[in-house]
Amino acid sequence: MNRLNSTSGRLNRLLPWFLPVVSFLSWFAVSESGMVPTYLLPHPKDVLAAASTYIFSEAGQGSHAGRFFEDLTASTIRVMSGFGLAVVVGIPLGIVSGRVALVNGMLGMTVNALRAVPGISWLPLAMVWFGIGLKTTVFLVALAAFFPIYLNAEAGARQVSPILLQAGAMMGVNRLRGTFAILIPAAMPHIITGLRLGMGISWAYLVLGELTGVSNGLGAVIMDARMLGRIDIIVVGIILIALIGRLCDLGLHQLLRLSFKSARRMP
């Protein structure tokens, strides 16, 4: 029994790596065989070399050399500002509209209509309003992350069992404490889902915002590389964004678990 558990535990830990490893191996095999020309799909070893130059070399030693940390900082600031904005607006608004029919009636239709607009259609408007750079990117990220955060907070607050709130009321809990000690913890699983979805989408819209011609950032590097025909750098950019996005998700989840009992103790 124990043995079985530990085997399946190990399997569970290895399972997520199955697809990445298989993809990498097939990529390697295809490149080695020479079936696909390198200007369409660069060889893994060239990508590795480009990545190493991009991350570790001194600036100036070849194109993009050593730019990684500057790009990472710029992009992270943009993502965090946009995401933070979405959190600050989305969570309170979501919770209130999950509990107060009047607010939900007022916001619901508009939010759902706006949600149907693809983020990319906001891009031209954002460029007119904010020009190219930080503000446009932050606007796009905030807008995109707002919807999952708001909608999940709203659903979470709406679905809180009335019996928990009644239990609080009978124990003499006032509205303010009820909100922070009962409503938010009870809605926490939904809130977390919204935050994680929002974080994921933030990175997607970051790249969109940076494709418009800003000078630094991970999205800008990808766009730059396309102009220069450096497909290896494009692949490096894609892989780095995937990695960083995953790390952000893990970090966010861990942070929430550290900060809230309800995040730690409920599935």
Binding site: I163, A169, M171, V173, A186, M188, K261, R265
Partner: peptide, 28 residues
């Protein structure tokens, strides 16, 4: 209105699932 002078033990489970036994008991 509800108040701690008239407390209810519900038929269904109405404990706060994110609090331990002690924390639930200390809540009020």
């Amino acid at each position: 209105r509800p108040g701690p002078d008239r407390c209810v033990v519900f038929q269904e489970d109405a404990l706060f699932p994110w609090l331990t036994v002690r924390e639930n008991i200390a809540f009020g």
